[in-house]
Design a protein around this nucleic acid. Structure first.
Lengths: 168, 168
DNA sequence: GGATTTTACTTGACTAGTCAATCATTGTCG
DNA sequence: CGACAATGATTGACTAGTCAAGTAAAATCC
């Protein structure tokens, strides 16, 4: 992983070295791959955030939580069970849920049979919002499929899996 | 991009679906690829942050800035020129530099001929710290090369470049 | 059955990212 | 030259991530 960043680029598929004000060459292809990985993930997340912000006052994290709660159905999920299904770790989840509650997108209730747990449920407002956002997010999810064919996509997944394993 | 996350896994190279408490299958391979991308980038960054924190009181962003300043040499760089070489955008850079200055790793000076610009330079302390961190970071940079061969690495870079282009 | 441990959160103190607004200094143009 | 626009940097108000510490309610163990 090396520093430095993008600005503009000319070619149809800008390569990593062009995205960066790169003075020296990369020490190795492996290093270039890591930078490509991070730049790409960053770009995908930024695009997602932009699209979500354009149509609703919601961040990707908040959207994630609502999707998880929709998947959980009307019984809802306790706080830490939500955290387990997200990329990041625990303590942030409480404050994230606070914001969602303030916006009227979730309801929380302390469980009667285990008063340590706090059950969270998506509200009807949230479900309506999600339904509105679904087509947009599906479209973004399918963008790689417009650029890569089936075999290439599977190849990419396999390569990423191996890189991830190397960093475990 | 779909929600949900990891916890533990058994197989040698855990696949994306296993990293997640996945109930339903993915809508498409493209969607699975995006999730793999984000999980992998996240893992790489987390590992980097952990290693840096283990040997010095420094974050990846702070390390990035110091590398950029080392590359710029003794003349230093103005604030926004640093921001241009990083992944994120402008306003955060001022506060990041504030922290680096507090730690004695950079010096700032308003330029005489253009008093709008603030020139930043890495201190000797920072350069010594970087020299100490270099082997560690080089090792991390080369991890993908232990898992993938040359052709696979180039393939990965090419695929990532195309995905990134799709999200431009 | 009362102390101890574990579980499920919660809070506080940081670092860092975003956007909008602001400020001083320069540049430009009529 | 003087109004006005552009540039470089900074600040304020948020969202969010991390770690360490704390609280309250189970669960477990003599």
């Amino acid at each position: 992983m090396s520093p430095r960043k993008s600005k503009t680029a000319a070619s149809p598929v800008p390569r990593v070295a062009d995205e960066i004000q790169q003075t020296r060459p990369f020490r190795s292809s492996a290093q270039e791959a890591l930078l490509a990985l991070i730049l790409t993930s960053d770009r995908v997340l930024a695009r997602t955030a932009t699209e979500l912000a354009r149509v609703a006052d919601i961040t990707p994290q908040q959207y994630n939580v609502l999707r998880i709660l929709r998947g959980a159905g009307p019984e809802g999920l306790p706080t830490l069970a939500i955290a387990d299904r997200m990329i990041e770790r625990t303590p942030g989840i409480t404050r994230l849920l606070d914001r969602l509650e303030r916006k009227g997108w979730i309801e929380r209730e302390r469980l009667a049979d285990d008063r340590r747990q706090v059950l969270c449920r998506a509200t009807k407002t949230a479900l309506k919002l999600l339904a509105k956002l679904d087509p947009l997010m599906d479209e973004l999810d399918d963008l790689p499929g417009r650029e890569l064919n089936g075999a290439e996509t599977k190849q990419l997944i396999a390569l990423l899996d191996r890189v991830r394993a190397a960093f475990a």
